[in-house]
C-alpha cells in the first residue's frame, strides 16, 4: 500500500463536512430551546400562582363564601359548587347528544347526501367559533328568548354544553371509526341487526374513546369564563344555588376574575388560591382521561 493512497481512502468514509455536523447539533438544540421556553413560562406561571395561592388554601377557603369586604373570611364554596353543578349538568347534556350525533354521522349518514356533508362541515366550524359567541347565543335563546330560563345553572351548563359539543362529536366519531369494519361485518353476518351491532359491538369498543372525549370537553368547559359572564353568572354569590333553574350561580373562573380585578393584594391572593383549586380539578379530570385511555383502550 502506497502512502499516497491512504488519505484518499479515508476521505471516502469521513463523510459530512463540519458545517453539516454543526447543523446536526444546532437543530435539536433549537428544538430543545423552544420546548424549554414553553416549559419555563408554564413553570414560572405555576410557581407564581403557587407562591401567592398556597398560603390562602385552607378548609375555610373551600367552605367559606366570598366577601367583598373581608378577604380573610372569604371563600369559594358557592363558586366551587357552581362549577361542579355546571360540569355535572353539562356532562348529562353532552354525553347523549354528542354520542348520538357521532353514531349518526359515522354509522347511518350517507355522505353522498348534501345535508350530511353540510352537518359535518358545520360541526367542524362550530368547534372554532369563539366562546363568547356561544355566550351570546345562550343569553339570547336560553336566558332570555324562547326558553327564558333566567340566569341559572341550567342556562350556563347548556351554554357550555353547546360550546364543547363539537369536541365531543369529533372525538366520538374518531373513536367509532377506530372500531374496524370487520367487527361490524362479523356481527351482521351472525344475523345481528344494525342496531344490535352498534349497541353491542361498536359502542363498547368506542366507549373509552368517547369517555376520553367527554372528559377533555369538560376540562375545556371548566375554565371558560366569557360565556358565563354573558349568560350572567354572579361574581359574588353568597349562597349556593338550591336548584338548577331558579337561583343565581357563580363559578370558579368568574370568581377568579372578580378577585383579580380587585385593587387589594389580599383579594388577588385569593384569586391565586382559587386558580390552584381550578387547576387541581383540571388535572384530576385529565388524569381520569389518561387512566381511561390506558386502562380500557382497545387494541385492534
Amino acid at each position: 500500500m502506497s502512502v499516497a493512497e491512504a488519505p484518499a481512502a479515508r476521505a471516502v468514509v469521513r463523510g459530512s463536512s463540519s458545517g453539516a455536523r454543526l447543523r446536526e447539533i444546532l437543530f435539536p438544540a433549537a428544538l430543545l430551546l423552544c420546548i424549554g421556553f414553553a416549559m419555563l413560562t408554564l413553570v414560572v406561571l405555576l410557581v407564581d400562582v403557587a407562591v401567592d395561592g398556597i398560603p390562602v388554601l385552607s378548609g375555610e377557603f373551600i367552605t367559606g363564601f366570598p366577601s367583598q369586604i373581608f378577604p380573610e373570611r372569604s371563600g369559594i364554596q358557592s363558586a366551587l359548587v357552581g362549577t361542579l353543578l355546571l360540569m355535572a349538568v353539562c356532562a348529562v347534556f353532552i354525553v347523549p347528544v354528542g354520542t348520538a350525533t357521532a353514531i349518526y354521522l359515522e354509522e347511518y349518514a350517507d355522505n353522498n347526501r348534501w345535508w350530511n356533508r353540510l352537518i359535518e362541515v358545520n360541526i367542524q366550524n362550530l368547534a372554532a367559533v369563539p366562546s363568547i359567541v356561544y355566550g351570546i347565543l345562550g343569553l339570547a335563546f336560553l336566558v332570555r328568548g324562547p326558553l327564558e330560563l333566567g340566569r341559572v345553572v341550567l342556562a350556563g351548563a347548556l351554554t357550555l354544553g353547546l360550546l364543547v359539543l363539537p369536541v365531543v362529536i369529533i372525538v366520538g366519531r374518531e373513536a367509532i371509526r377506530a372500531v374496524p369494519s370487520s367487527i361490524r361485518e362479523g356481527s351482521m353476518a351472525l344475523g345481528a341487526t344494525q342496531w344490535q351491532t352498534i349497541w353491542k359491538q361498536v359502542l363498547p369498543g368506542a366507549l373509552p374513546g368517547i369517555a376520553t372525549g367527554v372528559i377533555l370537553a369538560l376540562s375545556r368547559a371548566i375554565g371558560e369564563t366569557a360565556p358565563l359572564i354573558v349568560v350572567g353568572a354572579a361574581s359574588f354569590a353568597r349562597f349556593n344555588p338550591n336548584d338548577l333553574t331558579s337561583d343565581p350561580f357563580s363559578a370558579l373562573p368568574i370568581q377568579i376574575l372578580a378577585w383579580v380585578q380587585d385593587p387589594q393584594d389580599e383579594f388577588r391572593a385569593l384569586a391565586a388560591g382559587a386558580i390552584l383549586v381550578l387547576l387541581f380539578l383540571l388535572l384530576l379530570m385529565n388524569a381520569g382521561a389518561i387512566y381511561l385511555r390506558n386502562r380500557f383502550e382497545q387494541k385492534w
Binding site: 370487520s182 362479523g186 353476518a189 345481528a192 363498547p204
Partner: peptide, 24 residues
Amino acid sequence: GMVFQKPNPFPKSIYDNIAFGPRV
C-alpha cells in the same frame, strides 16, 4: 353463516364471542 378472510373475533372473551350470535 359467514367466515371472513381475516379472523375477526370480537374484543370479548372466547365464551362471549360464541354466545353473541345466540344472544342477539
